[in-house]
Design a protein around this nucleic acid. Sequence first.
DNA 1: CTCCTAAATGGAAATCATTTTCATTTATAT
DNA 2: ATATAAATGAAAATGATTTCCATTTAGGAG
Lengths: 147, 147
Amino acid sequence: MEKYRKALKENKLKATPKRIAIIKFFLKNKKYASAFDVYCHLRANFKKIGFPTVYRNLDNLTKIGILTKFELDEKNLFYYGICAADKGVHHHHIICERCHKISDFELCNFESLKGEIEKETGFLINHHNLFLKGICKLCQESMGGER
Amino acid sequence: MEKYRKALKENKLKATPKRIAIIKFFLKNKKYASAFDVYCHLRANFKKIGFPTVYRNLDNLTKIGILTKFELDEKNLFYYGICAADKGVHHHHIICERCHKISDFELCNFESLKGEIEKETGFLINHHNLFLKGICKLCQESMGGER
DNA sequence: CTCCTAAATGGAAATCATTTTCATTTATAT
DNA sequence: ATATAAATGAAAATGATTTCCATTTAGGAG
């Protein structure tokens, strides 16, 4: 948690109770959640809580690299998850389609592909994003052989 | 164009003038566009045109693999682009950040990474998506050495 | 510890892309 | 030419997200 307080301070964001609660919420279950999910969680712990606060904070935390934001199913709904990787470290995310856990991994061989793709497409590549979906270890185990 | 008419028929979608116009619109400029962009284009060519028709058709065409849908800037706005690859062929997309051209490429070495990531994360990977942004050949040329 | 100020917050209303509903029109198989 | 399932448009609904603004609060300075 200290790590996050520090990150907030470095980015001139106050460590408000709600911000801390949001971070803890994600840290605790490691699952991705929608703004509405977060709102519901906070509503259970604070007398007052408004949607603007939820959205603003999710955005703030995403901007400073504590959370990651992504869109699923092309359903016009965004999800957020805790970003385990340290800020600035190149990494990608993988989500569990069953329990919605979100994990980071740094393994990425894109650089070795980059040149070839640039040759094939004629593009000069500036950014790449690899997004994975699968089944996490725990879910694999709990599912046993079935599926 | 015949190719697209055939694809429509195979998917039990009628070759309505507006559908054809949408496909032609994307084929012509090869750039990605929002539903609103498409709406504006159609409005210039048809007396009557409604948003529902635009959205429904963009979705239909995406479903049968003629278009590809994606989200940019996490701004809650979706874009569509023509998908050059044949349906079923594994491929990814790259967009030009300058002119918004969208291209396909089949080069993908993900399989060679898959095992390693599965070992590192414990996940069983079901889907992967590689999304690239860069500058296309024409824009590179038109920009000259600058930038 | 108290003050001060910029930052954060909540409620209400606004925004705005997208979707639903439903009556009318149209593409196309027969 | 016709029958019919599919497509369409207008209007209204939806629903996630954002704006506005008055009030509250975190946290550094003194």
